[in-house]
Amino acid sequence: MKKISLLLFGLTFIISGCSNTVDRKTKMNNQLAAVENNDNYICKTVKKTGSNFNTRRCMTKEAYKRSKEAAQEALIRLGRTYTEGGTN
């Protein structure tokens, strides 16, 4: 009797965990769809180095502009400190 009740408890726990994951994914997909339809956001598919999985990144146009400018400034700073042959 104890084994049956323990088994039922375990199955209930597993099933409730699966439904929670599905609800969370549905909620995230709905939020992503709402953001993609908003003209104030830019969404891109990004592939992380060393991974086979793509992720969808969305940010405001202003945040995208700041990120792009920061990356360009970093490249400029790197270009100033780098010389061929590895010596400064």
Rank of each mutant, 00 (worst) to 15 (best):
M28C: 12
T83W: 02
M28Q: 13
M1G: 13
Q72Y: 03
S67W: 01
N30F: 03
T55I: 14
G85E: 02
K48R: 14
K68L: 06
A33T: 12
A71N: 13
C58P: 05
G17R: 00
E36L: 00
K65A: 09
G85Q: 01
K3Y: 13
N38G: 03
T49F: 13
I76Y: 04
A71V: 08
M59T: 09
S5L: 09
Q31I: 09
T21F: 06
N30V: 11
N30S: 10
R56S: 11
E62S: 14
C43Y: 01
E84M: 03
N29W: 06
K27H: 12
R66S: 13
C18Q: 13
N54F: 06
R80T: 04
N88G: 04
Q72D: 13
S5K: 10
F13D: 14
T26F: 05
Y64E: 12
V46E: 11
N38S: 05
L7N: 09
L7D: 07
A34E: 05
F53D: 15
N54L: 01
I15A: 03
K27G: 09
T21P: 09
L32I: 06
I14L: 04
L32H: 02
N37I: 02
A70P: 05
G85W: 00
S51N: 07
E36V: 04
M59W: 02
R57E: 01
M59A: 08
S67K: 09
I15H: 01
A71Y: 04
C58I: 02
K25N: 10
F13M: 10
I14T: 06
R66P: 07
I42D: 05
T45C: 14
T26K: 08
V22L: 11
G10N: 11
K48G: 10
L32K: 07
D39H: 02
L7C: 10
N54W: 00
G50Q: 06
K3M: 15
K2N: 14
L8N: 11
A70W: 06
K25H: 07
N40D: 12
E69I: 13
T60A: 06
S67C: 09
D39S: 05
Q72S: 15
S19Y: 14
E73R: 10
A71E: 14
N88K: 06
K61R: 12
E62A: 13
K27V: 08
L78Y: 03
L75P: 00
L8Q: 15
S16M: 03
L8G: 07
G17E: 03
C43W: 02
M59D: 06
L78P: 00
E73T: 14
D23Y: 10
G79S: 01
A74W: 01
N30M: 08
T49Y: 14
C43K: 00
E84S: 12
C43T: 10
L11N: 15
R24Q: 15
K65P: 01
K2H: 15
I42C: 08
G50S: 00
L78I: 05
K68D: 14
K2G: 15
T49Q: 04
V35I: 12
L11T: 12
S51R: 05
M59Q: 08
A70F: 04
